[in-house]
Design a protein around this nucleic acid. Sequence first.
RNA 1: GGAGAGUUGUCUGAGUGGUUGAAAGUGCAGCACUCGAAAUGCUGUUAACGUAAUCGUUACCAGGGUUCGAAUCCCUGACUCUCCGCCA
Length: 429
Amino acid sequence: MLDIKFVKENKELVKENIKKKFQDQKLPLVDEVVELYDKVCSLKLEGDNLRNEKNNISNQIGSMMREGKKEEAEKFKQRVIEINEKLVTLEKQEAELNAILKAKMMIIPNMIDDSVPIGRDDTENVEIEKFGEPVVPNFEVPYHADILASINGLDKESAGRTSGNGFYYLIGDAARIHSAMISYARDFMIDKGFTYCIPPFMIRSDVVNGVMSFEEMDAMMYKIEGEDLFLIGTSEHSMIGKFKGQIVDETSLPITLTSYSPCFRKEVGAHGIEERGVYRVHQFEKQEMVVLCKPEESMDWYHKMWSYTVEFFRSLDIPVRTLECCSGDLADLKVKSCDIEAWSPRQQKYFEVGSCSTLGDAQARRLGIRTKGEHGTYLVHTLNNTVLASPRGLIAFLENNVQEDGSILIPKVLQPYMGGKEVIEPAMQ
RNA sequence: GGAGAGUUGUCUGAGUGGUUGAAAGUGCAGCACUCGAAAUGCUGUUAACGUAAUCGUUACCAGGGUUCGAAUCCCUGACUCUCCGCCA
């Protein structure tokens, strides 16, 4: 969400930005919002003047009452009643126009960074850098659900009975390695100086509305019946919501947090839920990083943050690459974003395991997250990035660590979380 | 879940429906005193929006209502504290 004043003073830049994102249908919005804004301002001025008159008269009535001039006061009352009637319609108009203005402002995309590659959709995303050799083993790597089956680690059938499609039981060493990876991810980020945080897993509707659009909400969020509560789709929701409407102390910036949470997603539409695997599911767990910082520091943090995820996966010896979102694929709130993709030796291509974004001040403007320092009060910048989402991370781990004989090697860094175990052997058939 | 108390500026904390944007203290900033500091004294000090400025509007948890006028009265909701109940 942009600052309306910025839009007013930089119409052409905003339009250019819309073109870069191939959203030409939104071009008329720019003139519309500026016009609306001017109207709202003049309505506000008119209302302010009326309110001023009303306040003055009311004060006069007050002093008359004190002096006992009751009859004189009665005459003035009539004028205030008139003003109030006018104000009701005026305020209604202003509120209506404001709502339209806000709705339109919400869909004008944020200004993208100059460095963002121009492209229409996800097919034009740009590979930035590869880390580690994408190894193609000389045997066929099984589908991850089959690897899990070989260690009796997955039961989707029972989950289907208890909860339906898109749920799963992870069992035994599979469950343990999943938790081990999450725990390792947590400690990895603590070592980077981030503060560990376990947030609420449910949030109120006003927070949901602050962090996402209505359509997104409908497609992602599970609502608790009879309560004003939603299950979070990512801990980013509760972590950013934590600061809603707050003025954080400038000296406390940057705020660097790493949060754990289960994540719940309806996954309406999109590619649906797969039959056998656990790549796209309704429930997963995630270690996340969230940063609130001064505007001038956000680009540095963006690069630091994605590189942490790369470093994390490399420490597990999983090859990854960074894929930068092109202008057309970039969500409207984001300034710049890249996906971290892990190598799949089975599919012999990379697949998404995380996403790093800087939202500039857009999210902060929407939620009213500000800081106060020498140069006054201003909006902070917000960033978020995945450290590890599992079972998706588990899939990357399994495919890259399964051996030809079906055993799964556990990397050194995970062994302490596995009770010292170095290898998981397939179960006897 | 039941009963009661509360929510005001950085914080503590006043506030009979009518110059209360808000007493007092505290914190912070500036000035004076001092070689310097402490102490003391004086002055200033909420935010958002509009305006070149003066100034104006809005905001005392949130949303409604009563009234010419609401921090103050009424209703609803959120949160906090105390007691009881239930509970991993």
